[in-house]
């Protein structure tokens, strides 16, 4: 026998289930009298610096059907590449910007939509700049452990080409699954980021 390490084990994950909205976005399903607003649903305040963008898309299962019961959270740096909240020691992020948002996919169409700002570049662990990106976390019925992925911007070709995370992906043909295409048709830069849980063009998910 040897001494014990005195460590605990992380609580095992369990699926968010189909009724995740009750606890996370109750107004979305008509529970209006418990909280003032759904957490993470408020628009970015006007005083936040940075280019306004829209991110939209759907999450597809292995049969090509869009999930209609999923929940997405995004986490990102401000326009200068500084993170709000805890753990940022390089400076102080834009105080008006929370960096975090949460949206359910539409219960009929499966479409999600975030209105946010384009993040700046933050450094990789060795100091090299990472291309601007937004962290996605996806939970739903049938997903046992929440999935982490990243959105990169299709109009940042040079930065993406030098990004140390994308550079580590051996199968280069999978890199485009992380890159959102830009359209300006609606007047606001709109990035479409579809997520495929399985099948051809399965999105890259990260063990972080």
């Amino acid at each position: 026998m040897v001494q014990r390490l005195d460590r605990l084990k992380e609580s095992p994950s369990q699926t968010a289930g189909p009724y995740v909205h009750i606890g996370t976005t109750p107004h979305f399903i008509g529970i209006d009298n418990v909280y003032p607003v759904d957490l993470g649903s408020l628009p970015v305040p006007p005083e936040v610096k940075g280019e306004r963008i829209v991110i939209t898309g759907r999450i597809f299962d292995g049969s090509g059907n869009a999930l209609r019961d999923a929940l997405i959270e995004i986490w990102q740096a401000d326009a200068n590449g500084l993170y709000p909240g805890r753990g940022e020691h390089r400076g102080t992020a834009d105080p008006a910007f929370s960096g975090w948002a949460r949206q359910p996919v539409d219960g009929t169409t499966g479409i999600y939509r975030f209105e946010t700002i384009k993040p700046g570049s933050a450094p990789y662990s060795d100091g090299r700049p990472m291309a601007p990106h937004i962290t996605f976390w996806i939970v739903s019925r049938g997903i046992n452990v929440g999935l982490h992925t990243r959105l990169y911007f299709g109009d940042e070709e040079a930065a993406n080409a030098a990004d140390p995370v994308l550079g580590r992906i051996e199968l280069k043909s999978r890199v485009p699954t992380l890159i959102a295409s830009r359209s300006d048709e609606s007047g606001v830069p709109t990035y479409t980021f579809d997520i495929r849980l399985q099948g051809e063009n399965e999105t890259i998910f990260f063990d972080i």
Binding site: G85, G99, S125, I143, L197
Partner: peptide, 23 residues
């Protein structure tokens, strides 16, 4: 879970500042 489970291995990213910070 059958149609909602990724088939490829997760890519090991480890922690960058994007994962070590939080709201």
């Amino acid at each position: 879970s059958v149609l909602r489970s990724p088939k490829n291995a997760l890519i090991s990213l480890g922690n960058t500042i994007s994962e070590m910070t939080g709201p």
